[in-house]
Structure formats: structure tokens, C-alpha cells
Design a protein around this nucleic acid. Structure first.
Lengths: 172, 172
DNA sequence: TGCAACTGCTTTCAAAATGAGATCAGTATC
DNA sequence: GATACTGATCTCATTTTGAAAGCAGTTGCA
């Protein structure tokens, strides 16, 4: 907890938090994938190993990006929750996704969510953040219609289904 | 140049670029500090060492975030320039700075720039980006009044001067 | 015409971080 | 009672990090 920081510049301090190849992916999976458990997070696209996941979860807890509590349904299960500090990263995720989509070799199916986030703009981000607050902080929130996460997930599945059809057609 | 990427998710690919404690600091110093030479970048707030700086500059060149050319004034001097890909990070820098300012133990003098960037909003970011394009890409650009970088720098120096006065008064 | 300061790096080497895979003690399910 | 699942932890080889010193020139000044 001592200030062993390299400098007190906000960008430097931010990088000390997630200037790391895994921390932000964990947050990403919790925000966009709705994951809450260790074993769920272990099944990431990128194949994080269990020791690294355990280490990063510990760091994120210490920093205050996550909280952890027991799962009533299983004595060995833990539930991880996002804090406001982590939910506040939604706009940064949206920008990062948009930037990556523009300049890096992304695939269509894994970037459709980023595209919708970009098109939705700050209004969509705010709605998403409110839903995350309801989900993770127990904040009051309306439950009308599909959630932002469900909408993004449906778009992802649509792309996957279309790609599967195209593969079949091409293979004929 | 082969796709040895962990996944084609835009956020993952972005993290492969600057999910690192130094790369974005180099870009920060070029954007906000106007630094263009190796030895200038070596004098960062955080004390990067020369081997790490050389390595990260090489990576940033390969990725296409920077370009490098000879300095006509000195046969051993190199000039590094930002590409559009790097200039496009300005809004992300602004968000990162705002987030760090809100949730991390920043200092007043090193976060005054982040505060002004946040208050200036997208309009200020765009002006800054246009100035960077003129400076690094040779794009046409007007030169009326102080640049955004100069304005931010002046605000930083004001805070420093005030703090120095306060120290004198307290020491009396 | 010398010499000090500066140029962008490279080298050396110890320490720290990374990460795949196996393992574990307890829990739930059937 | 067997099987699968829980959140980790352990081992150990590989990779990365980073401080410090060094280098082959170049430039500016006396």
C-alpha cells in the first residue's frame, strides 16, 4: 500500500494498473462476457493460465477494481464483482475497441461488439454502465427489454451463424 | 510479421500493442512533451533506461505507431514522428488521464494537463490532433495563438510556480 | 586543433516476471 | 461411491526487465 509508484502522473498510474497484457482482459470478460467465477474467467479467448489469473485477480482486488464474496450456492465458489472504478472503464474499452478495429488486424466476429459500442456512442455506454451497476453493485435499475450485453452477444452470434452458412456454401 | 496473436479481439490486440508499462509513456512524452529525439525521451519522469527505450522504439516503429528519419542538423541525430495511428490515441489518453485522476493518487502538478484535457472535451482533442498532424505529418494547419501543448505546459508551470511560493511561505 | 559534451544506441548480467501443466483438498451431483 | 467441479497453489524452465557501463562516432567551443 506504500507509494512505490514511478511517478504521480495520471497516465503513468493508469498504466501501473493495467499496463499489463491480462488485467484488462479479465475486466473485459466480466463486462462483456458477464463472467463472475474463477473457472469462467479461465476459459478466456486468449487462454490465461490459472496462476496468472489468480495473481491478477489478487492485484485487482487490492487496487479496488474488484470485490469478492462467497457464492451461497456452493461453499467453494467465489463471486467477483466490478467496482465503480472498473465500471468507469467502459468508455475506455469502447475507445480501445474502436482504435483496435481501425488499426489492427481484428476479425469480424470478435469486433462486432466494438463496432456496436462505437456506433452506440456515449448514450449506449451510459446505459451499459447503469446495467453493470445494477448487476454488480446492487444499484436500482430498470429491466425493460434486452440488456446491452445481450444485444452485443446476439450480434456476435448472428455473425457467427452467417459465417457458418457461408462456410457450408463454399464447401459444397 | 506473422500473426502470432493470442486472439483477434480488438481489445486484446490493442493490449498487445501497449499492454506494457513503457510504450504509452513514450507516446505521451511525444504528444504532451513534444519530444522527438532519443536523448529527450530518455529524460522521462519515470526514468526509462536506454535499452528499454531502444527496444520499445523499435517495436513502435514495427507496429506503425512511429516513423524515424535523419535530423539534417546532426549526422547522428534521429527524429521520431507520430503516425496517424498514434495521434488517434489522443482521446484515449484524455480518458485514461481522467480515469487516473479520479481513482488514483495523482499529484496536482502532473494532473493539471489531464484536467484541462477533460474540461476541453472532444473539441480540444480535435484541435490538439490537428496540431500534431501539422507537426508530425506535415499536414497543413493554422498557427494562430498558442498551441494546445503550450497551453497545457503553461498551466503546469503555473501550478509549479504557485507550489513554490507556498513552500517559501510555509518555510518562513 | 584539441577536448568535452553530446549522438543513438548496444552490451553485460543479475533479478524478476511469465506461463504451461500438474496437482490439491474440499464440495456438489448423481 | 464415483465423477466432475471449486478456486486456487506448486514446480520449474523460459522470457523479460532494467540499471549501469560502454561505444563509435559527431559537434561545438577554446
Amino acid at each position: 500500500m506504500i507509494d512505490d509508484h514511478r511517478s504521480t502522473c495520471p497516465i503513468n498510474l493508469s498504466l501501473e494498473v493495467f499496463g499489463d497484457k491480462w488485467s484488462l482482459l479479465i475486466i473485459r470478460d466480466m463486462i462483456f462476457g458477464g463472467k463472475r467465477h474463477f473457472r469462467e474467467l479461465l476459459r478466456s479467448q486468449e487462454g490465461i493460465s490459472s496462476n496468472i489469473l489468480a495473481d491478477r485477480l489478487k492485484t485487482l482486488l487490492e487496487i479496488g477494481m474488484l470485490t469478492k464474496r462467497d457464492d451461497p450456492s456452493h461453499k467453494q465458489k467465489a463471486i467477483y464483482s466490478l467496482t465503480e472504478m472498473a465500471i468507469a472503464l467502459v468508455p475506455i474499452m469502447a475507445h480501445l475497441g474502436a482504435w483496435g478495429r481501425r488499426y489492427l488486424p481484428v476479425s469480424e466476429e470478435l469486433s462486432i461488439r466494438a463496432q456496436l459500442m462505437e456506433e452506440g456512442g456515449p448514450a449506449l455506454w451510459k446505459r451499459f454502465m447503469d446495467e453493470l451497476r445494477a448487476e454488480h453493485l446492487g444499484a436500482p435499475g430498470e429491466t425493460e427489454g434486452p440488456t446491452v450485453r445481450q444485444t452485443l452477444q446476439a450480434a456476435y452470434e448472428d455473425v457467427m451463424a452467417r459465417k457458418a452458412r457461408e462456410l457450408v456454401r463454399a464447401g459444397k
